[in-house]
Structure formats: C-alpha cells, structure tokens
Design a protein around this nucleic acid. Structure first.
Lengths: 125, 125
DNA sequence: CTAACTGTACTATATATAATAATACACTTA
DNA sequence: TAAGTGTATTATTATATATAGTACAGTTAG
C-alpha cells in the first residue's frame, strides 16, 4: 500500500501522509479502518518509527485520522474541512509551466489529469 | 520590482527566480533587458550577494537569463524550452485540496485564477 | 594602464529541517 | 502481567538555506 521514494525531494513523512490521504480518497481506506502501528509500518517500509509517527501526527492535525494512545490509529469518519494554502503553494510551479511554454489550456488539462489519477488511479488522460 | 518575504517557507533565491520569470511573462522584463548586478540587487533587498547569485544561476540553468562574467546579466531572447516536472510537484497540493473538500471544478478554477494573476496581475477572479 | 564594476568561487559559520537511533513513559487490551 | 498502542525525549548525522568575508577572472570607462 505504501510506496516510498527515498530519492524524492519530498520528505518521507510527507509521502506517507499523502498516500494515506490518497488511499482515503480512492476508497481503499474507509472511515474506521485501522492503520498499521507506528512500529509495524516503520518496519514494513524500512524507515524509522519516528518518521511514521511524524506522518501520523500531521494526518491527525489535518483530521484525516484519529489516534488514541494505547489503542491505535483509525481513519476519521467526519469529512475533513481544514484551511489550506495548498493552492498558493502551486503558484511557483504554475509560473514554471508558463515559462516552459505551456498554454493555459495545457496546464488546466494537466491538473485535471492529475486530479483524475488521484481520484481513481485509472488513466483516462 | 522585487518583493521578498523573509517569513515565507520558500527560500529567498527561489522567490527571486520566480519573480524574474514572472516579470518576463508579464512583459515588465523584455529580452535584452539588464538585471541589477548581484551586489546591487543584494543591497537593494537586504540579502546576501551569494543568495542573489544562486537565484541568477538557477535562472541561467533554466535559460531565462544570460550572464557574462564581467559584463552582467540580461534576459534571454530565445524562448525557454526546458523539461520540468513542475506538474508532478503539484500532486501533493492537489491531493490536499481534494481532501479539504474542493471539487474538481473548484480546483481548476483556482488554478486558472492563479494563472491569470501570474500573466496579467489584474484580479479577474 | 587603472579603477571600478561585473559574475564566480571558496571557506567558514549559523540555523532549520529531515531522518535515524535508542530509550522511556502513558495507556489499552488480551 | 505482558505485549501491544502512541508519544516524548535526547543525541547524532546529513542536507539545505543564508550570511559573511575574501579572492579571482573578466569587462569597461576614465
């Protein structure tokens, strides 16, 4: 379920958090489902337990999961509504795409394709 | 012309590079125009010359500017066509927007709005 | 030629982030 | 009670960012 790229520029804990969210979006993870324990997942993917713990803490901050000391971690059942400046963070990349010669339509199509891939995992580009 | 946010999570040199590219896109900087010298711009915005130099080196790598030792830095006149994985880098943010409850249409509208703002700087949201 | 300006290179230092490692603590449950 | 949860803490390492100071190589106006 988890696929970590150690050579990626994005931190391991971020990759983990994103993949959990993606699992929820795609329905592979449903509200109430348990996530592996910090130590178990760390052993499975070969990283430090602290790194997994950091991913879980970030996910709890975003209301994606609920963690209970001594019990474990489950997917939250209430829809996550949190404020995010994710859109603003895309600005530098959009600038770069424009400068690389991409048209507005091309950029929007690219974003739409990524969106579809995140939602379904089926290539309908 | 340059507006640096020291509290931003993105590095100063990246902010500089993006703002130069944006200046070119918006037509404020035209091919052949000179950029301030490393030391001059550093003094103007109150950062270290090395930081400006790093921004310029990144811009030259992306074929945005041309630098000549002893002379200075000018905007390139050939259209920059470089490969970029900027689109892929947007994936985590799109995931986050989805999880924050945004619809596909809302996300595309947001991206389009950012695109328009980059191109023209006039709020037509 | 000289002086003043260009970009560039280098070393050193400081800070923050990311990740690992090892240990310990609080809580839950079979 | 024992084994499993999440969490906290300290230490260490590596990397990225930024500053500081110095030096070098090339250009240009005087």
């Amino acid at each position: 379920m988890f696929n970590i790229d150690l050579r990626s520029s994005s931190p391991i804990y971020e990759q983990l958090a994103e993949q959990v969210k993606r699992g929820v979006i795609q329905g592979m993870l449903k509200p109430g489902d348990s996530l592996p324990s910090v130590r178990r997942l760390a052993a499975d993917i070969g990283v430090n337990p602290n790194t997994v713990a950091k991913a879980y803490q970030e996910l709890e901050r975003q209301q994606v999961i609920i963690t209970v000391r001594g019990k474990g971690t489950i997917i939250n059942d209430i829809p996550a509504t949190f404020t995010t400046n994710a859109a603003e963070k895309m600005r530098p990349f959009i600038t770069e795409l424009i400068y690389a010669g991409k048209t507005k339509q091309e950029i929007l199509e690219t974003v739409a394709a990524i969106y579809d891939e995140i939602r379904k995992g089926q290539n309908n580009a």
